[in-house]
Protein backbone atom coordinates (compact mmCIF):
# COMPACT_ATOMS: atom_id res chain seq x y z
CA UNK A 1 0.00 0.00 0.00
CA UNK A 2 2.94 2.33 0.52
CA UNK A 3 3.60 2.09 -3.21
CA UNK A 4 0.07 3.19 -4.00
CA UNK A 5 0.44 6.03 -1.52
CA UNK A 6 3.70 7.21 -3.08
CA UNK A 7 2.26 6.93 -6.53
CA UNK A 8 -0.76 9.05 -5.65
CA UNK A 9 1.41 11.53 -3.78
CA UNK A 10 3.55 11.96 -6.85
CA UNK A 11 0.46 12.61 -8.95
CA UNK A 12 -0.91 15.26 -6.65
CA UNK A 13 2.45 16.92 -6.19
CA UNK A 14 2.72 17.40 -9.94
CA UNK A 15 -0.81 18.38 -10.93
CA UNK A 16 0.36 21.73 -12.34
CA UNK A 17 2.95 20.09 -14.52
CA UNK A 18 0.41 17.47 -15.55
CA UNK A 19 -2.12 20.01 -16.77
CA UNK A 20 0.46 22.17 -18.55
CA UNK A 21 1.80 19.14 -20.39
CA UNK A 22 -1.72 18.02 -21.32
CA UNK A 23 -2.55 21.46 -22.65
CA UNK A 24 0.63 21.35 -24.70
CA UNK A 25 -0.27 17.88 -26.00
CA UNK A 26 -3.72 18.99 -27.10
CA UNK A 27 -2.35 22.08 -28.80
CA UNK A 28 0.30 20.24 -30.75
CA UNK A 29 -1.75 17.16 -31.60
CA UNK A 30 -3.54 18.34 -34.69
CA UNK A 31 -1.17 21.09 -35.70
CA UNK A 32 0.08 19.41 -38.80
CA UNK A 33 -3.39 18.63 -40.17
CA UNK A 34 -5.30 21.13 -42.25
CA UNK A 35 -8.59 20.57 -40.45
CA UNK A 36 -6.88 20.79 -37.06
CA UNK A 37 -9.02 20.19 -34.00
CA UNK A 38 -12.03 19.47 -36.20
CA UNK A 39 -10.68 15.94 -36.57
CA UNK A 40 -11.34 15.33 -32.90
CA UNK A 41 -15.04 15.40 -33.76
CA UNK A 42 -15.04 14.31 -37.37
CA UNK A 43 -13.53 10.91 -36.64
CA UNK A 44 -16.02 9.94 -33.92
CA UNK A 45 -18.93 11.39 -35.90
CA UNK A 46 -18.13 9.17 -38.86
CA UNK A 47 -17.76 6.15 -36.58
CA UNK A 48 -21.01 6.86 -34.78
CA UNK A 49 -22.81 7.14 -38.09
CA UNK A 50 -21.40 3.85 -39.36
CA UNK A 51 -22.16 1.94 -36.14
CA UNK A 52 -25.64 3.38 -36.00
CA UNK A 53 -26.24 2.49 -39.62
CA UNK A 54 -24.86 -1.04 -39.42
CA UNK A 55 -26.14 -2.05 -35.99
CA UNK A 56 -29.14 0.22 -35.60
CA UNK A 57 -30.64 0.17 -39.05
CA UNK A 58 -28.99 -2.88 -40.56
CA UNK A 59 -29.10 -5.44 -37.76
CA UNK A 60 -31.82 -4.14 -35.45
CA UNK A 61 -33.97 -2.73 -38.22
CA UNK A 62 -34.29 0.52 -36.30
CA UNK A 63 -35.91 -1.11 -33.27
CA UNK A 64 -35.52 0.93 -30.06
CA UNK A 65 -34.00 -0.48 -26.87
CA UNK A 66 -36.93 -0.57 -24.46
CA UNK A 67 -38.42 2.83 -25.11
CA UNK A 68 -35.04 4.50 -25.80
CA UNK A 69 -34.19 5.14 -29.45
CA UNK A 70 -31.23 2.98 -30.43
CA UNK A 71 -29.22 5.99 -31.55
CA UNK A 72 -29.34 7.57 -28.09
CA UNK A 73 -28.69 4.23 -26.41
CA UNK A 74 -25.69 3.67 -28.67
CA UNK A 75 -24.28 7.15 -28.03
CA UNK A 76 -24.42 6.68 -24.25
CA UNK A 77 -22.09 3.71 -24.62
CA UNK A 78 -20.02 4.83 -27.56
CA UNK A 79 -18.99 8.24 -26.25
CA UNK A 80 -17.41 6.91 -23.04
CA UNK A 81 -15.75 4.24 -25.15
CA UNK A 82 -14.24 6.84 -27.46
CA UNK A 83 -12.54 8.16 -24.36
CA UNK A 84 -11.68 4.81 -22.75
CA UNK A 85 -10.21 3.12 -25.80
CA UNK A 86 -7.61 5.68 -26.92
CA UNK A 87 -6.78 6.66 -23.33
CA UNK A 88 -5.97 3.07 -22.44
CA UNK A 89 -3.97 2.27 -25.54
CA UNK A 90 -2.04 5.53 -25.68
CA UNK A 91 -1.73 5.79 -21.91
CA UNK A 92 -0.16 2.35 -21.87
CA UNK A 93 2.32 3.47 -24.47
CA UNK A 94 2.93 6.87 -22.89
CA UNK A 95 6.05 6.01 -20.94
CA UNK A 96 7.61 4.17 -23.86
CA UNK A 97 7.13 7.04 -26.30
CA UNK A 98 8.47 9.65 -23.93
CA UNK A 99 11.17 7.73 -22.10
CA UNK A 100 13.97 9.04 -24.30
CA UNK A 101 12.84 12.54 -23.61
CA UNK A 102 12.22 12.29 -19.91
CA UNK A 103 15.21 10.18 -19.07
CA UNK A 104 17.55 13.06 -19.86
CA UNK A 105 16.03 15.07 -17.08
CA UNK A 106 14.51 14.66 -13.68
CA UNK A 107 10.91 14.04 -14.49
CA UNK A 108 8.27 12.12 -12.53
CA UNK A 109 7.70 9.33 -15.03
CA UNK A 110 4.60 8.10 -13.25
CA UNK A 111 2.57 11.12 -14.34
CA UNK A 112 2.94 10.33 -18.05
CA UNK A 113 -0.11 8.04 -18.24
CA UNK A 114 -2.16 10.62 -16.34
CA UNK A 115 -1.08 13.30 -18.81
CA UNK A 116 -2.41 11.19 -21.68
CA UNK A 117 -5.69 10.63 -19.86
CA UNK A 118 -6.10 14.33 -19.10
CA UNK A 119 -5.35 15.43 -22.63
CA UNK A 120 -7.99 13.01 -23.93
CA UNK A 121 -10.48 14.35 -21.39
CA UNK A 122 -11.09 17.72 -23.03
CA UNK A 123 -12.62 16.06 -26.04
CA UNK A 124 -14.62 13.70 -23.82
CA UNK A 125 -16.27 16.51 -21.86
CA UNK A 126 -17.34 18.30 -25.01
CA UNK A 127 -18.85 15.06 -26.28
CA UNK A 128 -20.60 14.48 -22.94
CA UNK A 129 -22.16 17.94 -23.21
CA UNK A 130 -23.35 17.14 -26.72
CA UNK A 131 -24.68 13.81 -25.48
CA UNK A 132 -26.68 15.53 -22.72
CA UNK A 133 -28.19 17.79 -25.38
CA UNK A 134 -29.11 14.86 -27.60
CA UNK A 135 -30.65 12.98 -24.68
CA UNK A 136 -32.88 15.92 -23.75
CA UNK A 137 -33.69 16.58 -27.38
CA UNK A 138 -35.04 13.03 -27.62
CA UNK A 139 -37.43 13.71 -24.78
CA UNK A 140 -35.53 11.64 -22.22
CA UNK A 141 -35.12 13.38 -18.91
CA UNK A 142 -32.54 11.66 -16.72
CA UNK A 143 -33.40 14.18 -13.97
CA UNK A 144 -31.86 13.42 -10.62
CA UNK A 145 -29.91 10.46 -12.04
CA UNK A 146 -27.47 12.93 -13.58
CA UNK A 147 -26.22 13.48 -10.03
CA UNK A 148 -24.31 10.22 -10.17
CA UNK A 149 -22.28 11.39 -13.17
CA UNK A 150 -19.38 12.51 -10.92
CA UNK A 151 -19.35 9.06 -9.34
CA UNK A 152 -19.01 7.29 -12.67
CA UNK A 153 -16.43 9.81 -13.85
CA UNK A 154 -14.45 9.01 -10.72
CA UNK A 155 -14.76 5.28 -11.46
CA UNK A 156 -13.63 5.92 -15.01
CA UNK A 157 -10.59 7.97 -14.06
CA UNK A 158 -9.44 5.74 -11.24
CA UNK A 159 -9.76 2.68 -13.43
CA UNK A 160 -7.99 4.28 -16.38
CA UNK A 161 -5.22 5.55 -14.15
CA UNK A 162 -4.73 2.20 -12.43
CA UNK A 163 -4.74 0.30 -15.68
CA UNK A 164 -2.42 2.63 -17.59
CA UNK A 165 0.10 2.65 -14.75
CA UNK A 166 0.23 -1.13 -14.86
CA UNK A 167 0.12 -1.44 -18.63
CA UNK A 168 2.67 1.30 -19.31
CA UNK A 169 5.13 -0.44 -17.02
CA UNK A 170 4.57 -3.84 -18.56
CA UNK A 171 4.74 -2.54 -22.11
CA UNK A 172 8.23 -1.16 -21.50
CA UNK A 173 9.51 -4.44 -20.20
CA UNK A 174 7.65 -6.54 -22.75
CA UNK A 175 6.99 -4.65 -25.94
CA UNK A 176 4.59 -7.30 -27.21
CA UNK A 177 2.17 -6.28 -24.49
CA UNK A 178 1.28 -3.12 -26.40
CA UNK A 179 0.23 -5.11 -29.46
CA UNK A 180 -1.64 -7.55 -27.27
CA UNK A 181 -3.47 -4.71 -25.58
CA UNK A 182 -4.45 -3.13 -28.87
CA UNK A 183 -6.06 -6.28 -30.18
CA UNK A 184 -7.65 -6.95 -26.77
CA UNK A 185 -9.26 -3.52 -26.83
CA UNK A 186 -10.63 -4.16 -30.28
CA UNK A 187 -12.13 -7.41 -28.99
CA UNK A 188 -13.47 -5.84 -25.83
CA UNK A 189 -15.19 -3.18 -27.86
CA UNK A 190 -17.42 -5.89 -29.23
CA UNK A 191 -17.56 -7.96 -26.05
CA UNK A 192 -18.78 -4.97 -24.07
CA UNK A 193 -22.43 -4.35 -24.84
CA UNK A 194 -21.85 -1.02 -26.57
CA UNK A 195 -23.38 -1.83 -29.93
CA UNK A 196 -25.74 -4.56 -28.83
CA UNK A 197 -28.07 -5.22 -25.99
CA UNK A 198 -27.23 -8.08 -23.62
CA UNK A 199 -30.70 -8.66 -22.16
CA UNK A 200 -31.58 -11.48 -24.53
CA UNK A 201 -28.59 -13.47 -23.41
CA UNK A 202 -28.84 -16.37 -20.94
CA UNK A 203 -28.24 -15.10 -17.42
CA UNK A 204 -25.00 -17.05 -16.96
CA UNK A 205 -23.31 -15.46 -19.96
CA UNK A 206 -24.59 -12.13 -18.88
CA UNK A 207 -22.95 -12.47 -15.48
CA UNK A 208 -19.69 -13.61 -17.05
CA UNK A 209 -19.74 -10.59 -19.35
CA UNK A 210 -20.13 -8.41 -16.30
CA UNK A 211 -16.69 -9.47 -15.10
CA UNK A 212 -15.41 -7.11 -17.77
CA UNK A 213 -14.95 -3.82 -15.90
CA UNK A 214 -15.81 -1.79 -18.98
CA UNK A 215 -19.30 -3.22 -18.71
CA UNK A 216 -19.67 -1.49 -15.36
CA UNK A 217 -18.48 1.83 -16.74
CA UNK A 218 -20.51 1.77 -19.95
CA UNK A 219 -23.71 0.76 -18.19
CA UNK A 220 -23.01 3.28 -15.47
CA UNK A 221 -22.99 6.03 -18.05
CA UNK A 222 -26.12 4.63 -19.67
CA UNK A 223 -27.95 4.47 -16.33
CA UNK A 224 -26.92 8.05 -15.65
CA UNK A 225 -27.91 9.58 -18.95
CA UNK A 226 -31.03 7.55 -19.53
CA UNK A 227 -32.10 7.74 -15.89
CA UNK A 228 -32.34 4.00 -15.46
CA UNK A 229 -30.74 3.23 -12.12
CA UNK A 230 -28.43 4.14 -9.25
CA UNK A 231 -24.95 2.81 -8.79
CA UNK A 232 -25.77 1.40 -5.34
CA UNK A 233 -28.58 -0.75 -6.70
CA UNK A 234 -26.13 -3.47 -7.70
CA UNK A 235 -23.79 -3.44 -4.73
CA UNK A 236 -22.13 -6.72 -5.59
CA UNK A 237 -21.10 -5.38 -8.93
CA UNK A 238 -19.89 -2.08 -7.50
CA UNK A 239 -17.88 -4.03 -4.95
CA UNK A 240 -16.37 -6.19 -7.66
CA UNK A 241 -15.45 -3.22 -9.82
CA UNK A 242 -13.64 -1.42 -7.02
CA UNK A 243 -11.87 -4.53 -5.82
CA UNK A 244 -10.59 -5.18 -9.33
CA UNK A 245 -9.53 -1.55 -9.76
CA UNK A 246 -7.68 -1.62 -6.46
CA UNK A 247 -5.95 -4.84 -7.46
CA UNK A 248 -4.78 -3.37 -10.76
CA UNK A 249 -3.69 -0.15 -9.09
CA UNK A 250 -1.76 -2.06 -6.46
CA UNK A 251 0.08 -4.33 -8.85
CA UNK A 252 0.68 -1.37 -11.16
CA UNK A 253 2.18 0.74 -8.39
CA UNK A 254 4.44 -2.05 -7.13
CA UNK A 255 5.72 -2.88 -10.61
CA UNK A 256 6.15 0.76 -11.53
CA UNK A 257 8.35 1.53 -8.57
CA UNK A 258 10.24 -1.70 -8.92
CA UNK A 259 11.21 -1.02 -12.52
CA UNK A 260 11.10 2.73 -13.04
CA UNK A 261 14.81 3.21 -12.37
CA UNK A 262 15.62 0.61 -14.96
CA UNK A 263 13.18 1.72 -17.65
CA UNK A 264 15.93 3.09 -19.85
CA UNK A 265 17.87 -0.17 -19.58
CA UNK A 266 15.01 -2.11 -21.07
CA UNK A 267 14.89 -0.20 -24.30
Amino acid sequence: MTHVYHLLKEQFANTGLMFRMSAYDIKSLYQMHYLGALWQFLTPAVQIFVYWFVFGIGIRGGAPVGDIPFFVWLLCGLIPWFFIGPSLVQGSNSIYTKINLVSKMKFPVSILPAITIISKSANFYIMLAILTGIVYFNGINPGIFLLQLPYYLLCLYVFLFAFTILASTISIIIRDFQLFLQSMMRLLFFLTPILWEPSRMPEVYHQILKLNPFYYLIFGFRDTFLGQGWFYEDLTYTLYFWALTLLILFIGAVLHFKFRKKFIDFL
Binding site: Q207, L211, T236, A243, L244, L247, F250
Partner: peptide, 17 residues
Protein backbone atom coordinates in the same frame (compact mmCIF):
# COMPACT_ATOMS: atom_id res chain seq x y z
CA UNK B 1 -1.28 -7.39 0.23
CA UNK B 2 -1.58 -8.30 -3.44
CA UNK B 3 -2.87 -11.75 -2.48
CA UNK B 4 -5.42 -10.25 -0.08
CA UNK B 5 -6.77 -7.86 -2.74
CA UNK B 6 -6.75 -10.65 -5.31
CA UNK B 7 -8.77 -12.91 -3.03
CA UNK B 8 -11.18 -10.09 -2.37
CA UNK B 9 -11.63 -9.50 -6.09
CA UNK B 10 -12.19 -13.18 -6.74
CA UNK B 11 -14.69 -13.26 -3.91
CA UNK B 12 -16.58 -10.33 -5.39
CA UNK B 13 -16.54 -11.98 -8.81
CA UNK B 14 -17.89 -15.17 -7.27
CA UNK B 15 -20.70 -13.21 -5.62
CA UNK B 16 -21.48 -11.69 -8.97
CA UNK B 17 -21.76 -15.09 -10.58
Amino acid sequence: QAVVILLFTVFAAALLL
